[in-house]
Write a protein that binds this DNA or RNA. Sequence first.
DNA 1: GCCAACGTTGGC
DNA 2: GCCAACGTTGGC
Length: 153
Amino acid sequence: MNHWLFKTEPSTYSVEDLMREANQTCTWDGIRNYQARNFIRDQMEVADEILLYHSRCTPTAVVGLAKVVRSAYPDPAQFDHTSPYYDAKSPADNPRWLCVDIQFMNKFITPVTLEVIKKTNVLNDMVLVKQGRLSIQPVTATEYKAVVKFGLG
DNA sequence: GCCAACGTTGGC
DNA sequence: GCCAACGTTGGC
């Protein structure tokens, strides 16, 4: 099983929004970055566990957990003219962008802030710290366990 | 809201 | 296929 970190801006979509969805499940659409797309396509599987991270807010932090409940399929938003994620250049017979469905698992008692992650030895090599702009990124099992321990402990 | 970092686009 | 221009992300 793989572990991931998904970023979201809480002003657009937050962990609380996910908790209010039917079955606490949503489609994680709108990923428009090839590196992130390739992770979804090549490595993401049902039951993979996800750290949900709130970006562009105060404080930026991992705020909860989710899991993959449907593996990669074409992102419907790329073909929807009314969507901000519409992509006129994506061929219908070979969709450029993929998405997964995720289900809420847990909301942290204590959000694990970027500040703490940077200060913690087992966490400060996370892709989050090294590669600031990647919105879907792999997390090692060790990193995952450490973040969960902070968040739920 | 600013702006540095960095990914993408497109002319050549 | 290089790289300047442009657009977006995200910490602060």
